[in-house]
Every structure is written in structure tokens, then in C-alpha cells.
Nucleic acid binder design. Structure first.
Length: 447
DNA sequence: TCTGGGGTCCTAGGACCC
DNA sequence: TCTGGGGTCCTAGGACCC
């Protein structure tokens, strides 16, 4: 356990709604609800003016409308949220390289890894440092506010940031963690949701202090091995989880809930295929491919079914994913109607076998991945569509977003792809086996 | 017409291999 | 011949988080 309050948690206040109020002055001071616009939508974020009426995240749009019908209901502008988020994360990274984003509006920062840290033994200095960060967040986002928590662990920092919302700062002094936690409800512990809360309640356990009085064995009997062990530690304020700057992507998925239940199988197959295309495009844009294709089907009565199939080799191909997904759907009874369909790919590898460009050039295998890393000479921007790409290759460019060619040989091209969503992907080399595409040397182009 | 979308992690059972 | 591991992979479902 750390003895210094060197972990910071920052949480932007009512983030989506605040961005809307920032960009549209007429919404300022008024209830704004992002999400919940469709017939089956839920609230993503409610401004504080809307929360007064009891509107909360994850509430159905129907209920939000009943509670606060005069609010502005917006469907959301994710580009604007991402842009603001990027600016905030950049501010945090300037304070320490160890920044772990949890979502667009939340991140942990490890001040102990900062190059210019405050005096971590001086609580006033830490507070001053954090206040400066909050100030800079406000400056770079055009006035958005953030709440910050500081403590000796992720758990404590996160709880601290909740204590003075909105636009607040809370430091939990080292050594005072347990007295802070003991009276709190068990559900403040991350991982304790509705189901666990109910189990604990039935065992007579309501507060953190109650949990502390229970043996590890009892907790494991109650909620399972992994969960029980983590509860046993966290209720004693013991948490040494590190702040992880980069986390590996494990899966990519797309799902959709439809306004009215689907009954037509052909339509479902078409929608699943469309989603497969979106998943495949995102895989390609990020340099991923995966072996396991999973479909998710939510029936009219909200029961949710998943079916998966693991392929022999990883794919990022629309046709392979669509074929697998529709095949999985074929075995399900959907006669009662379907409200949600989804497709996902997991078991990701950062290399691709055989049909890298199969989807895009008519499913003929023209290229083969040969290595997953390569020395990186001077970056060259990819030629634009219709530019110096050989026939067929410009399509790849438009599918995959921005990218840079990092080098090329007679029949090998080394490329780094990047999208606005994810930033740079891994550097990869491909052999070009189609004689029509070789020899080929990309021309440097200017921005 | 209660109940989004994109993720992560865990559990449990069965197959399969050594 | 019988019994019994352990380890890994795969599948389905559930809980949880923002």
C-alpha cells in the first residue's frame, strides 16, 4: 500500500450534457438530457438541472420524459465529446505519463510517476497541483468542470472524487481511509452492483464495516472466489492496483436495439451482416483480427442469448464474420420477436492471416501478413484515393482511415494505420503477392 | 412498448491432451 | 484394467462499469 496520496481520479461533471451547454448557450442553466430520444433509448447523461427532477443515467427515455418533459432531449454529438476528452487527457498526460482513461470522461493519474511531481509528502502541495490541473482542464475545454479525488489507491481516489461533486476536489489523507469507508454502503465498492448488494443484504451485510467483520471464506461462499477475495481486500481499503497507461483491446462489437421487434429472418440476417461489416472495418482500422465471432440476440421478453464460434485463424473480413454470424443465428428460435442484435469479435491478434484485403478486392487473396513489427523509417502519408496507390489499394486507404507508409521494398509494404477513434495502430508489414501490384514504391506526399 | 452501447471479468461445464 | 489427476481451450451466461 502506498503511504502517499499519489493517485488522482478525475471525473468530468455531467460530461455530455455540459458539452452541449457549452456549445449552445441557450441550453445553459436549463435541464439537458443526452440520450433517451428513441422509443427504446436510455439517458446517457443528465445535466444537474435535470437531475433535480430525478433524471438519472441509464433511466429509460420514457421515464425521463415523464419526470422532466421540458428538458432538451439530445441524441448526442460524440465527435465533440471525443474532442473534449482528448484535450482533457492531454492535460493529464502533461502532468504524468501514467494516465489510465476509464471512459471519455474519467481517468486515473499516477502522480508518483510524474516527471515534475508535487511534493507527495505535502498534502497542500498535492492539492495545489490538482487544483492547477482542474484549472487547465477548464481552460482547454472551454469551461467544462471536473471533480477530482486524491488518495493512496485507485479505490480511494475514485471515492474521493464523488465526495464533492460537481466542480470539487477531495483529498483523503493517508491513514484516514478506513474511517472514511466504514460507514459507507457496501455498494461503494467497485464490483458491488445490484445483484451482489442483494446477496450481501440477505446475509445482513450493509456497510463496508459489516464486510470487514466477515471472514474471507464466508465472503467467498457468498459471492465467489475472485469477487470475494477482492471484496475482502477493498473493504479494508487495501488496493494496490497500478495505474495502467495502456490497456489491450480484447474484443470489438456492434449492437443495436430496434424500435419494434424483428420477426423477419431475412431482415435479421441483413442487419447482422451490416453489423459484421462495421465490426470488420473497425478491426481493420485498428490493425486487429480475431478468431471468435459472437452474436448477441435479445428476445422480446429481454432474455439475452449469445452464440459464438471460433475459427481456425483470425479474420478481419466482412464476409467471414457475416457468414459466421448468420450461421449462428440460423440455430436460434426467434419466432417471438427480437429487440436487439449484435455481432462481436474476440480472441484478437494483431496480425492477419491470408485474406487481409480479401473483402476489398473481391475476396481474392493478394496479400499476406508477414510480420507484426518493423523498423520505422521516416513516416510518409498514404496517398489519397486515386493517388499513387496501385489499383485496388486506394480502397484500402479509405476503408482504413489515415495511415502512414513506414517503408517499402520490392514486394513488401510496411504501414501504420491510425483513426480518429483510436490513434495509431501497430506497425505492420505486408507482402504483396499480386504481380499487378509490384514493383511498387509509394511516393511521399505532403500534408 | 420499462430496460442503450461498448466493453471487461468471472464462473462453470465439457472436450481434449498428457 | 481402473482410477485420477492437471492444464488448456471453448462455450454460454451473468455481473458489472461508464
Amino acid at each position: 500500500m502506498r503511504t502517499q496520496a499519489s493517485i488522482l481520479h478525475l471525473d468530468l461533471d455531467a460530461f455530455f450534457a455540459s458539452v452541449e451547454q457549452r456549445d449552445k448557450p441557450s441550453l445553459r442553466g436549463k435541464p439537458v438530457i443526452v440520450g433517451g430520444t428513441g422509443g427504446r433509448g436510455v439517458v446517457a447523461t443528465a445535466s444537474y438541472e435535470a437531475r433535480v427532477f430525478g433524471v438519472r443515467s441509464a433511466m429509460s427515455g420514457r421515464e425521463a420524459r415523464a419526470r422532466c418533459g421540458h428538458a432538451a432531449f439530445l441524441s448526442g454529438r460524440f465527435y465533440a465529446y471525443r474532442e473534449a476528452s482528448n484535450a482533457v487527457m492531454a492535460v493529464l498526460r502533461s502532468a504524468s505519463p501514467a494516465v489510465e482513461p476509464l471512459s471519455l470522461d474519467e481517468a486515473f493519474v499516477d502522480l508518483a510517476q510524474s516527471e515534475n511531481p508535487p511534493d507527495l509528502d505535502d498534502l497542500d502541495d498535492i492539492t495545489r497541483f490538482a487544483e492547477e490541473l482542474r484549472q487547465r482542464v477548464s481552460e482547454v475545454t472551454g469551461g467544462l468542470t471536473a471533480s477530482v479525488g486524491l488518495g493512496t489507491s485507485k479505490f480511494i481516489a475514485k471515492i474521493a472524487s464523488e465526495l464533492n461533486k460537481p466542480d470539487g476536489l477531495t483529498l483523503v489523507a493517508p491513514g484516514t481511509e478506513q474511517e472514511l469507508l466504514r460507514p459507507m454502503r457496501a455498494s461503494v465498492i467497485p464490483g458491488v452492483g445490484p445483484a451482489t448488494t442483494e446477496r450481501l443484504r440477505r446475509a445482513g451485510l450493509h456497510t463496508v464495516a459489516d464486510l470487514e467483520s466477515v471472514s474471507l471464506e464466508e465472503l467467498i461462499g457468498l459471492v465467489g472466489k475472485a469477487h470475494g477475495a477482492s471484496l475482502h481486500e477493498l473493504c479494508r481499503a487495501r488496493d494496490d492496483r497500478p495505474v495502467l497507461a495502456e490497456r489491450e483491446t480484447k474484443s470489438v462489437s456492434v449492437e443495436g436495439t430496434y424500435e419494434t421487434d424483428l420477426t423477419d429472418r431475412r431482415l435479421m440476417q441483413g442487419l447482422l451482416s451490416k453489423q459484421a461489416g462495421e465490426v470488420a472495418a473497425r478491426l481493420r482500422a485498428n490493425g486487429f483480427s480475431g478468431r471468435t465471432v459472437t452474436i448477441k440476440v435479445r428476445l422480446h421478453d429481454f432474455t439475452t442469448i449469445s452464440r459464438s464460434s471460433t475459427l481456425d485463424s483470425p479474420t478481419d473480413s466482412t464476409s467471414a464474420i457475416a457468414r459466421t454470424a448468420t450461421g449462428l443465428l440460423a440455430d436460434l428460435d426467434t419466432s417471438g420477436g427480437v429487440r436487439l442484435l449484435g455481432v462481436g469479435v474476440s480472441g484478437l491478434a494483431d496480425w492477419i492471416q491470408d485474406d487481409l484485403f480479401g473483402d476489398l478486392v473481391g475476396d481474392t487473396d493478394t496479400t499476406t501478413a508477414i510480420s507484426s513489427d518493423a523498423a520505422a523509417p521516416t513516416p510518409i502519408e498514404l496517398p489519397r484515393r486515386g493517388g499513387a496507390w496501385p489499383p485496388g489499394m486506394d480502397v484500402v486507404h479509405s476503408e482504413m482511415g489515415r495511415g502512414w507508409v513506414w517503408g517499402s521494398g520490392r514486394d513488401v509494404v510496411t504501414v501504420r494505420f491510425e483513426t480518429a477513434d483510436t490513434g495509431p495502430g501497430p506497425v505492420r508489414s505486408y507482402a504483396i503477392s499480386d504481380p499487378a501490384l509490384t514493383p511498387w514504391k509509394p511516393e511521399p506526399t505532403t500534408e
